[in-house]
Design a protein around this nucleic acid. Structure first.
Lengths: 110, 110
DNA sequence: CTTTTATATCGTAATATTGCAATATAAATA
DNA sequence: TATTTATATTGCAATATTACGATATAAAAG
């Protein structure tokens, strides 16, 4: 009890859920938006941009990285993170599917 | 401690996080996909489609509804749920922003 | 009115997430 | 080498999520 029953769903469903879940926190949205805004890697300065402690931010970065939404490179003693297109492309596939449906759906029951 | 510090983020960031979080569970992905597959409201039959108990499914439907991703109508003694375009349009705005960036980004640091 | 059918809510246990202080690690610089 | 700088990890408390049995609710069917 308490654990998501991942084994009962398809790999695609679990993967999509993992991606969405990783995006499902305002701090992580803020990180993604910041990466877009500065159009460059973030090396440390993100800690000054967010109202959260360094360990908490490090944890959020790790989750985004594990989900495949950002990737990081070592640059001397700093680490640079930027968006990982691969993860966002998977999300795009899912929402393209949803949006195509919504644009063409026939039933008007609700 | 333990609670997301929503008050430190913008309304848009919090709203987007709520939407993504609602999608961030394989059962809720499965519900969305099923709604698309059958191209009609679901009235009870979703309980037979998912490997989860009726109360658990009811809870997942509630979360999708609260997030604005599905909407429901009473049909006699049943309730019919279908996708709510409004919620998905908000998500679309966010990912359009991300995708536009990814297609045009200049820096190649990572 | 009673029973059936469909769905929601309550209560609770198991687990996951969030956040941070303290500490570790590891490269850069003095 | 010692110190500084940047980031990660550990450990823990607070809270949230997931799941389900039991029960409530409410309309339909009998």
């Amino acid at each position: 009890m308490g654990t998501t029953k991942s084994e009962h769903f398809t790999d695609t469903q679990n993967e999509m859920a993992t991606l969405a879940k990783a995006i499902g926190h305002p701090a992580r949205i803020a990180i993604i938006e910041y990466l877009i805004k500065v159009d460059s890697c973030i090396c440390g300065d993100i800690v000054n941009e967010l109202p959260l402690s360094q360990p908490t931010i490090s944890q959020h970065l790790k989750e985004l990285k594990n989900a495949g939404l950002i990737k990081g490179n070592f640059e001397g003693n700093a680490i640079c993170y930027c968006l990982n297109e691969e993860g966002f492309n998977k999300i795009k596939l899912f929402f393209n599917h949803v949006n195509t449906y919504l644009e063409n759906k026939k039933n008007e029951c609700c």
